[in-house]
Design a protein around this nucleic acid. Structure first.
Lengths: 226, 226, 226, 226
DNA sequence: AATGAATGAGGGTTCATTCAT
DNA sequence: GATGAATGAACCCTCATTCAT
């Protein structure tokens, strides 16, 4: 269970740079740009810095991306591969209970998104949405809307199977999404600056959020109190 | 009653503004700066724009704040006066049940913080923390740490009074904070660009989050299903 | 008869610079830009150089002209004040013979245009027309077309009064315009680089061109040869 | 007969082009460069564009010309092979009248120079002389001076044979050169942008200029008026 | 010889900051 | 205090030139 490694930044590889590698360049530049845009924001990131981190010169960056803004858009696009087809299929074939599905869902989200460099996109979008409304719209359409729909289907499954009570499905989506987004923010924002107090254990975090969400804080009628 | 001011500070909104008296200047500049920093980020906000929105000239801004960075810090400081001593006292005197306290807490947080311009500070800090680590540290010390402690005390009260089950108090703090932060993000970020789907009703939002958190999604043993 | 001073460049005045002179700036910048654009062309002229010649810093230039291209267009516009109304009136009230009018016309063109810094515009337009087609169209409409019409009217006057023979009026316009343009080119182009052989005396130049044009090179039937 | 090549050099136009053999490369590059330099000027022409128009890659250009400036100089040199020795000899053997010689000279100049791509050199030199003073000096020495001398000899022949009156030979050279230069400017500059009004018929142009120059506009004593 | 990926100096433009009025 | 013209460092981007293949 590779849930660990919270909040770490994958060190640049750079083993044997120095060979014309046309195909690799855009990817390296996008990786560098993602890191820097997430860290400093779009405006505060200098093109030259992106190039330097990718191990190339300033001019090379513009060989692949005509403007800094196009680089930004490519970064977003690159990190939003529509994985929802895959995830929807996983949903269809999942055989356990819906509570298990919720827990599985959040764990898997952490493993595949939260723990990876791609999670920075969330912070990036939140920070830059109003400067790039079309990017915000694109993100909404490609990520938020499908994600919301998937979570809704999970909740509906739970209700249909009698596992969940009568809940406000539409707004309960936020109860699942908010903790994930919040963990991402911690990782990429304040948590990256004030580390001592934010040594969050992702597994414990996910488990706690799921436990609380499924069963509530309140003692249940007929239950023994601790 | 002032528990509601938890976790943020209402920007002193329009009491006797419009006086165009000298004393009002810094406040108007801070208000303008807050709005713009939240909307566009620190780097993308131009000093002249702040001045213009405050109704003064570019030069005047630098009469009150020696640099743009100092203006930024003042904006954060101004919107984070540490009222936690007062709020802690309010906590002591609260007389209702702890679940009521949680619900009241979140409702009032929305009214006094979330719905006001001060809520932008949260987005601002998240966006700029890594560019201003000392500001992040300051925010952590002045807001996050006391806020966390206060929420912990609420949770402890609930457990002590037998209202809450055996919960992981330290990580359950996030279950209360995450929905609030998430609502703030929606308001100030993507939600401000892609409105149609984000017409969130704050009251319904808060109620749903609190309901889910207190009682959980799962049907309870012995309960009737809907 | 101030025909002289051919090919000289008026030295910059700059007596007591150093006082905020908002109104004067645009004019000084346009003068500096005209000189440099004429000398080096649009692309080879650096913005900073224009600013320096006008005695201001680089940034100041952009306070008055949003882009280098707008500066260029302003330079052209500024130096094409429609003097044709005035000239047309001079034409109407001219009382001498048409040959005298032709000679007067060319002399006056030299005094008012050819000898001044404005004559550089002609070289500038010739050099840059294809890079700025809209400017070329503008110049055509504001200068070439009215100028052509004026010269045509002169020629028509000469024919109507029996002073000129049966000439191809439309193409004879070029016989008057070409020498003027050519003199301008000498002044602002090769003549400015290879001076020794181009010490052209403008008065002699104009007189020779007019004499040749009016009377022709060929000896006339019944005339004595020199 | 080769008097016609006066004052310019026809770019060796498409004899057995399309061979894509190595020897053709520099010539194709020079042709492409001439066109582009004439159209856009030296500074605004990109090396890569020259290469592309010549059908080779950017690197190949620099295989043949070490710098863009050397390319420019080669373009000028290539189009100015000093054929004046030959032309002077042609002048010696011309058998017609001097007025015929003048007319023949201008007609043939148009056919062999004015109408070909080589005529662009004139505009190029006018536009760039001050950025390349050594090129201007070279052009002066190779083209202007010999051309001037040749025209002077023509004029002197006319006077010596009693065909021309007492003219200012030195400055009358301009009466012959200016119309040719002016036609070239029309072709390569404004006339290329504002076509409708510049549909000049070269034959009519040359005839009109020569007629006017030889016989003058004024009616002659003892002539019938039209 | 030919290519085209890579470089980096250079130039247009922005904008925080200064300062004379 | 208030203003806004002026400054110049900094940044995005271009393009002549290099060089490994």
């Amino acid at each position: 269970m590779s849930l660990g490694k919270l909040m770490g930044v994958p060190a640049d590889d750079s083993p044997a740079r120095r060979g014309r590698r046309k195909e690799a360049r855009p990817g390296e530049l996008l990786d560098a740009a993602l890191d820097l845009f997430v860290e400093k924001g779009f405006a505060a990131t200098r093109s030259e810095e992106v190039a330097a981190r990718a191990g190339v010169s300033k001019g090379t960056l513009f060989l692949y991306f005509p403007t800094k803004e196009e680089l930004f858009k490519a970064v977003v696009r690159e990190n939003i591969s529509g994985r929802f087809a895959e995830w929807n299929e996983e949903f269809e074939t999942f055989e356990g209970s819906t509570p298990d599905m919720v827990r599985y869902c959040m764990r898997v989200w952490w493993e595949r998104i939260g723990a990876t460099r791609a999670s920075g996109i969330t912070k990036l979008i939140i920070s830059e949405a109003r400067n790039f409304p079309d990017i915000a719209a694109f993100y909404h359409q490609e990520v938020i809307a499908p994600g919301t729909k998937l979570v809704q289907r999970i909740l509906e499954r739970g209700m249909a199977r009698g596992e969940f009570g009568a809940i406000d499905i539409e707004y309960t989506v936020f109860s699942i999404v908010a903790p994930m987004v919040y963990l991402t923010m911690m990782k990429h924002s304040v948590g990256a600056c004030v580390p001592q107090d934010f040594e969050v254990d992702p597994e414990r975090y996910v488990n706690t959020q799921v436990d609380n969400l499924l069963h509530g804080l309140c003692v249940r009628a007929g239950e023994k109190q601790a």
